[in-house]
């Protein structure tokens, strides 16, 4: 703006820009600070925590087999990458496999439930029972009965992950606008058309909220199942690495595996948030920016 002001004062025909008053400037600055701060502050807090962690280890002379310094954890992460990456891959396979089955199963069951009241009455209690029984209690049984380790792990992770999708989608399918339902009836829509053009789109925000929860839960389910299975060898995941490292008091590797699990969880969450945003940004209230 200063360029325009000093540059050409002779041309007075141009209307001068209305100067922003102090209040507006303050508000604009606050908005800018908030936009930057949203990212910078959490990163700064994380960095500060890591530094503090490092300093505490040095000041208190904590031995690395009790609490390794962050630098050592990072070194271990790189040094053991060949082992950890295989474990990470195995855990990811179970996590996303379970999430996929949970999504398909949860969605399918929800559709089935809303098509027939009797099916819902018959099976919904069992979905609840599966949900409320702690997975750690059922996992040993499942792993005994199921021959394939991968299948056993998948089933465990699926049980944890499918319920939020099922219950959210059922709620969503049932909350289609009543006037719109009447409209569909008036125009003689078939059951399938009502599902496809009305109920499924209405359920979309609910389904996506369920998916967001299920993404995190499928990772938790996979890790818990791995702990119970406690297997070493080709199928072992990050949880097995943590177990094994704990037997050997290999604290740096435990931390390295833990960090990988956390990062996976964060990535899943961000991916789900992005998917949800992309699908809803055009129309749903949750995705709209409000003018204050």
């Amino acid at each position: 703006m200063s360029v325009a002001m000093t540059g050409d004062r002779g041309v007075s025909a141009q209307p001068e820009a209305i100067p922003l008053d102090a209040e507006e400037l303050k508000r604009a600055r606050a908005a800018k600070i908030e936009a930057v701060g949203r990212w910078v502050i959490p990163i700064f807090v994380l960095a500060a925590t890591v530094v503090l962690w490092d300093r505490v280890c040095v000041w208190k002379e904590v031995p690395h087999y009790i609490l390794p310094r962050p630098g050592l954890v990072f070194q271990t992460l790189l040094a053991d990458w060949s082992i950890l990456s295989i474990a990470l891959l195995n855990t990811l396979k179970i996590t996303f496999g379970a999430l996929f089955i949970a999504t398909a199963g949860g969605l399918g069951l929800a559709i089935l439930f809303t098509q027939s009241k009797w099916i819902e009455i018959s099976f919904f209690p069992y979905a609840v029972i599966l949900q409320v029984t702690p997975i750690i209690a059922i996992a040993p049984l499942i792993l005994i009965y199921v021959d394939s380790l991968t299948a056993g792990l998948l089933i465990c992770a699926w049980i944890v992950a499918f319920f939020p999708i099922l219950s959210n989608t059922t709620l969503g399918l049932n909350s289609a606008d009543h006037n719109l339902q009447n409209l569909f009836r008036l125009y003689g829509a078939s059951r399938w058309q009502t599902l496809r053009y009305l109920r499924l789109p209405s359920a979309m925000p609910y389904f996506l909220a369920g998916l967001k929860i299920a993404g995190g839960l499928s990772l938790i389910g996979a890790i818990v199942a791995e702990f119970v299975a406690g297997s070493a060898g080709s199928g072992s995941g990050l949880a097995n690495q943590i177990l094994e490292a704990s037997y050997r008091l290999n604290m740096p590797r435990m931390y390295a595996a833990l960090i990988l699990i956390s990062f996976t969880g964060i990535l899943i969450f961000l991916t789900m948030t992005l998917i949800s945003h992309l699908l809803l940004r055009k129309w749903h209230e949750s995705a709209l920016k409000r003018e204050v």
Partner: peptide
């Protein structure tokens, strides 16, 4: 009400 599908 207008009763429109908000997603369409």
């Amino acid at each position: 009400e207008p009763t429109l599908m908000p997603w369409a």
